[in-house]
Simulated scan of single mutants.
Amino acid sequence: MKTYYFDHAATTPMHPDVAKAMLEVMQGPGGNSSSMHAFGRAAKQQLNRSRDRIAAAIGCKPAELMFTSGGTESDNAAIIGAARAQRKQGKTHIITSAGEHHAVLHTCEWLSREEGFSLTVLPIDSAGQTAPQLVKDAMTPETALISIMHGNNEVGTLQHIEEIGAIARAGGALYHVDGVQTLGWSTSRLNELPVDLMSFSAHKINGPQGVGALYVTNGTLLEAIQHGGSQERKRRAGTENIAGIVGFAEAVEISVKEREKKQPFMDELRKRWVELLQEHVPVPVVVNGHESQYLPHIVNVSFIGVDTETMLMNLDMEGIAAASGSACTSGALERSHVLRAMHVSEERIQSAVRFSFGLGNTLEELEEAALKIGTIVRRIRNNY
């Protein structure tokens, strides 16, 4: 059976050049980058070279990058570490939005519940955006940290991070951005953005799973949440994943180099996919998210009248990989908290499916898959 992988927002296939770079490390001599002997120095050199490559590609200083195990750890390290550091300055208020990834929302809620921080969760509009004015209105002299993502992982909506960052700077608060979905897509240079902390993950850009990074601007106070070693400038204890970091650097360079041609093609796939679904599916197909400010590779649609879980099971049986939302919660039966926060109709929430595209996808396979989905929906309707 032919398969169709339309779930790149969950994880991406590894680029062959990334796998090759990692294999060279894994087949070479071992070495701990903290060791003083030649093997350790060689590992340290690979670590430093990778840090330099990523920093040059995304526009920051190498010393501002802290390697982690992925986006979730980066979000936790940023939010908990910055909040605790700011508390020592007398600031105990955190602002976030209802549309954030659970790695941000749950961490902020934990700080509020367990460590006494006050928390403001701002609403998002029907397109998935947080109005910068709401951020400004929510700020107080005690505001320690604002965490508003760049691109939403479920509906693809982009946020006004420049405006929000400027508001944070003016109010004396730190600004953290979950940039996991926008790495490789955004043309902005980090050192040009009013952002103090930004989270990244390698496996969203055809890199390896289990490695990510946190951008921490020079001078930003951050308490370590992991202890036991002096790695990563004493901000993240633990032996670095050299092979993964080398692969991460390769993936970042490839994504930046290919962005100019990849971005318009992904946007073409996205637009054509919606057209094909509306042409072949015998129920209304509604797009969820912003109509113009969106990531080019993510589209969330509701098949009105067709239950999400039923749809996903049938898609899987036909070899089509899609999702109901975040990969971190798609194993559960709960519906999208992002769509609920957008206050779309219940019938749209109950019938929403996220499709996301990337390496290997073609217009031809979209046309084939759309025909299959039309057949699936007719079959589901006939069985009701």
Results as ranks from 00 to 15, higher is better:
residue 239 T to H: 10
residue 224 A to N: 12
residue 226 Q to V: 14
residue 72 T to C: 09
residue 154 E to R: 01
residue 371 L to R: 13
residue 194 P to S: 05
residue 344 V to R: 13
residue 129 Q to C: 14
residue 182 T to V: 15
residue 230 S to V: 01
residue 10 A to R: 14
residue 26 M to I: 06
residue 362 T to S: 15
residue 64 E to I: 05
residue 272 R to E: 15
residue 13 P to T: 07
residue 278 Q to C: 06
residue 292 S to C: 01
residue 130 T to P: 07
residue 17 D to T: 07
residue 347 E to R: 13
residue 46 Q to N: 14
residue 247 G to Y: 02
residue 85 A to M: 05
residue 240 E to P: 04
residue 100 E to D: 09
residue 242 I to K: 09
residue 172 G to S: 06
residue 74 S to M: 06
residue 200 F to S: 05
residue 383 N to P: 00
residue 84 R to F: 09
residue 294 Y to K: 13
residue 16 P to G: 04
residue 337 H to T: 12
residue 58 I to S: 10
residue 285 V to H: 11
residue 251 A to C: 02
residue 243 A to D: 11
residue 39 F to A: 14
residue 109 E to K: 14
residue 137 D to R: 12
residue 28 G to N: 08
residue 113 R to P: 02
residue 256 V to P: 01
residue 52 D to N: 13
residue 304 I to R: 10
residue 146 I to K: 08
residue 265 F to P: 01
residue 22 M to K: 04
residue 176 H to G: 05
residue 179 G to C: 11
residue 358 G to Q: 08
residue 44 K to Q: 15
residue 79 I to H: 03
residue 367 E to K: 12
residue 194 P to Y: 07
residue 160 H to S: 12
residue 265 F to G: 01
residue 49 R to K: 12
residue 285 V to F: 10
residue 43 A to Q: 02
residue 345 S to N: 13
residue 163 E to N: 03
residue 208 P to A: 01
residue 248 F to V: 00
residue 232 E to F: 01
residue 204 K to Y: 04
residue 179 G to H: 12
residue 243 A to G: 05
residue 187 T to E: 15
residue 78 A to G: 14
residue 6 F to L: 03
residue 186 S to Q: 00
residue 306 V to W: 01
residue 48 N to A: 05
residue 176 H to C: 08
residue 246 V to M: 06
residue 285 V to A: 06
residue 310 T to Q: 15
residue 267 D to F: 00
residue 205 I to C: 09
residue 363 L to A: 12
residue 170 A to H: 11
residue 367 E to P: 00
residue 314 N to P: 01
residue 6 F to Q: 00
residue 315 L to W: 08
residue 335 R to Y: 12
residue 337 H to Y: 03
residue 80 I to H: 00
residue 294 Y to Q: 11
residue 193 L to R: 11
residue 363 L to I: 14
residue 5 Y to R: 08
residue 380 I to K: 04
residue 165 G to P: 11
residue 160 H to T: 01
residue 274 V to F: 09
residue 5 Y to G: 07
residue 268 E to G: 01
residue 241 N to D: 13
residue 61 K to A: 13
